[in-house]
Design a protein around this nucleic acid. Structure first.
Lengths: 225, 225
DNA sequence: CGCCGCCTTGACTCCCTTCAATGCGAGTGG
DNA sequence: CCACTCGCATTGAAGGGAGTCAAGGCGGCG
């Protein structure tokens, strides 16, 4: 249920980081859609803050299938982990700008600044909550419910119910929700058919009045077919 | 793939907490199997460290189905969240003893102690990694693979391949893996049939030599039937 | 013993995946 | 401008894996 990161704490992180003189060590990097920032198992020399654009973090299985852990938008810190290697691949979904911090320096700054480490802890706790929400979703909800929830989350993150942008491809959505691309398509078609949403193009949708989409997401068991 | 928490950081947390004089404020509570420590949506006045036993954290859906987020054993800190309410229900799986810290005091201590907040951040990052591992598992693995992975994790946490204890019920396992109780049973039966494991009782198993269980968990697509 | 909770097994159903075409919009070059 | 291509999205048909429903089986305990 959680795609795009909340900005508040991250902004705070940015502030605390600059207080700690970290920005002197940081550089900015630009990415085109599809470019990777770091790759699974690569040693984690840097961590990053997204300045603009949308990125995704995912894992690839042996057979080529993927699981998209999360989408991140501007403000989010990514690439921090308890491990010395990155456990995911991070890839730009839209054109992106990111600030790169040397990991060691960043961790030292965090150790030295209670505010920064508190903010980091809070953001991490929030992500953990969100990861668990999505475990419930993937483990216990039907395809229709997952897609409906996903659209609602997109809308909430963009604070709109009309002309909401879908930044990512159908494949990305499928990999995020634990479905196949065909099932995502069919669910979207069905949602249009029952008039829970309308779509002006493949990447823009509006939510119909009346809470129909919410009802479906909540589990009043709307099925495909 | 992640059931039982690693102790190292938590022990450190305990040390740091007592350094900060927190233990003076803490009390110890004992729980029988099935008793709850806190309930979803309840305001989070306390956080807890498990001293002995195994606990589980879960969410309940409207229709009564559950998703077990994680099992925790001694050393783990639970009940901390970015929100002022608990987002899960915590329940004892085996008889448990827990130390209760007033949440406010604990957060203050964390803010005052860089070591403590670093340790908390690390533990939380680790849990996030584990939550995402399990998202991959639930989203992309077959029932057989999930059950096989679960048994391997249990064995790893107990550092044994013979006479490994299954602390939790079949229902708990199912709710943890995003399956039904029947599917878990059938997978276990199948694993016994192909001699990947043997079971001396319903709650104790041994892993067969030859890495058969690992092969199944990895995805060489062993199916039910 | 007989009850009770947990576990196991069987038969059937159905949602989602798999496999396979087809549609569609954007960019390219003749 | 249109033919062509390429990637992404959509739709259809068929099959299978896991869920659902329904009986037992097994072990512990009063």
């Amino acid at each position: 249920m959680a795609q795009i990161q909340i900005h508040l704490d991250s902004d705070f992180i940015a502030g605390a980081a600059s207080d700690a003189g970290l920005n002197a060590l940081a550089c900015v990097k630009h990415l085109k859609p599809g470019e990777t920032l770091y790759v699974e198992a690569e040693s984690a020399g840097f961590c990053y803050q997204i300045l603009s654009g949308v990125m995704k973090e995912y894992n690839t299985l042996e057979d080529g299938r993927r699981q998209v852990a999360e989408f991140y938008s501007d403000g989010a810190m990514i690439g921090l982990s308890a491990e010395p290697q990155h456990l995911h691949t991070a890839e730009a979904v839209t054109p992106c700008a990111v600030r790169c911090f040397p990991r060691e320096a960043f961790m030292h700054a965090a150790a030295a600044s209670p505010e920064l480490s508190q903010a980091l802890l809070n953001e991490t706790l929030m992500r953990l909550d969100r990861a668990r929400e999505r475990m419930v979703m993937i483990g216990r909800m039907s395809a229709m419910q997952r897609v409906a929830s996903f659209l609602l989350r997109l809308a909430a993150d963009q604070d709109a119910r009309e002309n909401v942008s879908i930044f990512m491809s159908r494949q990305d959505i499928a990999d995020h929700l634990g479905l196949t691309i065909e099932t995502v398509c069919r669910a979207l078609t069905e949602l249009k058919k029952v008039k829970a949403v309308s779509m002006s193009s493949t990447r823009v949708f509006s939510i119909a009045e009346g809470g129909c989409l919410e009802t479906i997401a909540m589990g009043a068991r709307a099925r495909l077919h």
